[in-house]
Simulated scan of single mutants.
Amino acid sequence: MSKPQIDLNDVEVVRIDERYSRQARSLLYHSYRDEPTFKYLLDSHRPGYKQRIRATIRELIRLHFDRGEFVFGVMHKKEERLLGVAFFSDLELKMDISRQLLWRMKMVLTTGFEGTRRFVQYFNEVQESLPAKNHRMVSLIGIHPDFQKQGLGKRLLETIHDLTDKDQNSIGLFLDTGNNRYLEFYKSLGYEVYTELPLGPIQEFVLFRPNPGYVDRAA
């Protein structure tokens, strides 16, 4: 069955709030359920993987909205349907997430101790690999499977790039992925491999897009 084709004139990138949480949860579940990082962190070979990944995404989304982070969505103008979403964080979220007691309690209850331990370790290792200088990070991003490879991911990231490039105090934007199929796409948008981290049986790629407008005031 052929996938529906989208006219880019019918979509726009907008900042969304918690009213779109349910759509965002569903969209990210379909985007991440087969991703190597999530499959390892939540042990996809053990029964209940779908429930664990749904619970993990729910808690991560809740944490972002509770913190008032930027969340951008690719919205179909006529249908008001969310086709893609990106959670866009500052430096502090990656530092804080493993220390959020309530978040950790909910994660343990829904995903189990081992899944929570792996997630905390994963977040810490990614964070420790990043420079101390001010930067931003795309923490979660996904395009509905029916509309992938139609330019929506590029449109979404370009909106984030426009915003981050205006911040002269930020060295740029980071994101990470355990799926090397995405590397060429990210490189085409100006990202470079910043470092690679061993994550169980896979390699997690930390990618960096420098901010062309960054001013090193210390220098």
Rank of each mutant, 00 (worst) to 15 (best):
I97F: 06
L82M: 15
T56I: 03
D167K: 06
Q121T: 14
D162P: 06
K149G: 02
E114R: 05
Y122T: 14
E158V: 06
T110F: 05
K149L: 00
K187W: 12
L189E: 07
G172T: 07
T159M: 01
F88H: 04
D90Y: 02
G151P: 00
I171H: 00
L82R: 08
V120W: 05
S129V: 01
Y122I: 00
G178W: 00
N124T: 08
R104L: 11
L60I: 01
K133M: 02
L102S: 09
F70A: 13
L189A: 06
V71Q: 01
V126W: 03
I141Y: 13
N134H: 04
G190K: 07
T110Q: 07
N180E: 15
L173G: 13
M95Y: 04
G142Y: 11
N134T: 08
R117F: 04
W103G: 07
L175D: 11
E69D: 10
T111G: 12
L140K: 05
L60V: 00
F72V: 03
E158T: 08
T177D: 10
L163R: 11
S188G: 10
Q150V: 12
F65W: 12
I141R: 03
M137T: 12
M75H: 09
T177R: 02
M107Y: 05
R99K: 06
E114N: 03
F87I: 09
I141V: 15
E184I: 07
V193Y: 07
S139D: 08
V138A: 14
S139N: 05
P131S: 08
A86W: 06
K187A: 04
K154I: 01
H76M: 02
M105W: 12
L173D: 14
F70S: 12
H64A: 12
L175C: 06
I97Y: 05
Y191M: 09
H161A: 07
I171C: 00
M105N: 14
L173I: 14
Y122K: 01
L102T: 12
H76S: 09
K78H: 03
K187D: 04
R67V: 06
R81C: 14
R81P: 09
D167C: 01
M75I: 11
R181Q: 05
K133F: 01
L197I: 15
S89A: 13
K106Y: 10
V120C: 12
S129W: 02
I143A: 11
K187I: 12
I141L: 14
E69F: 04
L175Q: 11
F147W: 14
K94Y: 03
K106S: 07
S170F: 13
E128Y: 03
Y186R: 06
F113Q: 10
Q148T: 00
A132C: 06
T56N: 04
E128P: 00
T116W: 14
R81E: 14
V138P: 15
G84D: 13
M75S: 13
K78S: 10
A132H: 00
F88I: 04
E128S: 01
L102C: 08
R62C: 01
R104Q: 11
E114F: 04
I97L: 00
R58G: 02
R136N: 03
V74L: 10
T110Y: 01
F119Y: 05
H161Q: 11
Y191V: 13
Y194C: 02
G112S: 01
Y194P: 00
L183T: 10
D146H: 02
T116V: 13
D167H: 01
V108F: 15
R58M: 02
K78G: 09
Y182S: 13
T116A: 14
L102K: 11
V85P: 04
F174P: 03
E184H: 11
M107G: 12
D146T: 03
G190S: 10
